[in-house]
Amino acid sequence: MTATTDINKIISKENLVYGKTSLLLDNEMHYCPGCTHGVIHKVIAEVIDEMGIQDKTIGISPVGCSVLAYNYLDIDWQQAAHGRAPALATATARLMPEKYVFTYQGDGDLASIGCAEIMHACNRGENIVVFFVNNAIYGMTGGQMAPTTLEGQVTATTPYGRDCSTTGYPMRITEILAMLPGTRFVTRQSAETPGAVRKLKKAVRKGFENTREHKGISFIEIVATCSSGWKLSPVKSNEWMKENMFPYYPLGTLKDR
């Protein structure tokens, strides 16, 4: 098989999961090679573009790797304090109910300092979409242990692996939120293969459609990689995620009512 044949196989129709969108700005991304954030940005941008809601969408990013998301998606953005994106989204959605409001948060942000914020926003059933990127580590600040860090996982603050007897257990925050009566749609997806990206895009669209129909809060977790924090190559990061994170954080929809 020639190199040309190999390339043609890779770009075959079934593997072309991305469409064209004008929402992504022509800025060089700051994310590390292999980071899942770039893929998620592309999917969100495509859905907003396809639904024709660019001028009606407001994104809210707090502190973390997602803090510079406004550099890449050509929509209105607001900046929230660490963990406080759901509170800001609540105010925005209530003041402007005709808008499509979403938060874009990492696990260190949402499941740690922002745990109370997301719990109460979900319990109230605010009409927003929450994108929760879970890579089981604090990526931006040096690779420290996060609430979602797996048992035995080595991080900057758990050099011998996470010891649950002293640090507690990895939080399945999505399962917790699914039990709250205020949540409408709760799902856990990934973005490491073309098939996974298609499922994620379907979930993203459903979340925004729920907002349009004022059905309440949609919570979309994306199990992601952090090559720099995990000290692995992009390929090895995907393998590690599948072997270690997927068993503890199984993919699929937990709630859809």
Score class of each variant (00 low, 15 high):
Ile75Val: 15
Ser227Glu: 10
Thr21Asp: 04
Leu25Trp: 00
Val186Glu: 00
Glu117Tyr: 10
Asn127Lys: 02
Pro181Glu: 10
Lys199Phe: 02
Leu200His: 00
Thr36Glu: 10
Arg124Glu: 00
Pro62Leu: 07
Gln78Gly: 01
Gly252Ser: 06
Lys99Gly: 01
Leu88His: 09
His41Met: 11
Ala191Gln: 07
Glu239Met: 12
Thr155Val: 09
Ser61Met: 05
Ser112Tyr: 14
Thr187Cys: 03
Phe102Val: 04
Thr148Asn: 06
Gln189Cys: 10
Val101Trp: 01
Leu25Pro: 11
Ile11Gly: 00
Leu25Cys: 09
Asn135Glu: 10
Gly229Arg: 09
Ile10Arg: 15
Asp107Glu: 11
Thr141Pro: 04
Met179Glu: 06
Met1His: 05
Arg257Cys: 04
Gly83Met: 09
Pro247Ile: 05
Arg198His: 05
Lys206Val: 05
Gly83Cys: 03
Thr103His: 00
Asn244Glu: 13
Met145Leu: 14
Thr174Asp: 15
Met51Leu: 15
Gly152Asn: 05
Asp74Asn: 15
Lys56Met: 09
Phe208Arg: 06
Val17His: 01
Ile176His: 04
Pro62Phe: 08
Ala196Lys: 07
Ala146Met: 05
Leu150Cys: 04
Asp256Met: 02
Val223Asn: 14
Glu213Arg: 10
Ile48Ala: 08
Ile118Asp: 01
Trp230Asn: 06
Thr4Val: 14
Gly195Ile: 06
Gly125Ile: 06
Phe208Tyr: 03
Arg188His: 04
Lys99Gln: 14
Ala80Leu: 13
Ser233Phe: 07
Leu177Arg: 02
Gly142Arg: 08
Ser66Pro: 02
Val129Met: 13
Leu68Val: 10
Lys242Leu: 02
Pro147Asp: 08
Tyr104Thr: 00
Asn71Val: 00
Lys9Glu: 10
Thr90Ser: 14
Pro170Trp: 06
Cys35Ala: 12
His37Val: 05
Gly52His: 11
Gly195Val: 04
Asn15Ser: 11
Asp163Cys: 11
Phe102Lys: 12
Glu221Pro: 00
Glu243Cys: 06
Lys236Arg: 15
Met241Ala: 07
Ser22Pro: 11
Lys42Phe: 03
Asn71Gln: 13
Pro234Phe: 03
Thr148Pro: 11
Thr4Ala: 15
Tyr248Cys: 00
Trp230Ala: 04
Thr2Glu: 13
Gly125Ala: 08
Gly195Asp: 13
Gly216Val: 02
Asp26Trp: 12
Leu251His: 08
Met171Asn: 07
Lys202Thr: 11
Tyr104Asp: 01
Ala111Glu: 08
Ala81Ile: 09
Glu221Thr: 01
Asp163Ile: 04
Thr166Arg: 12
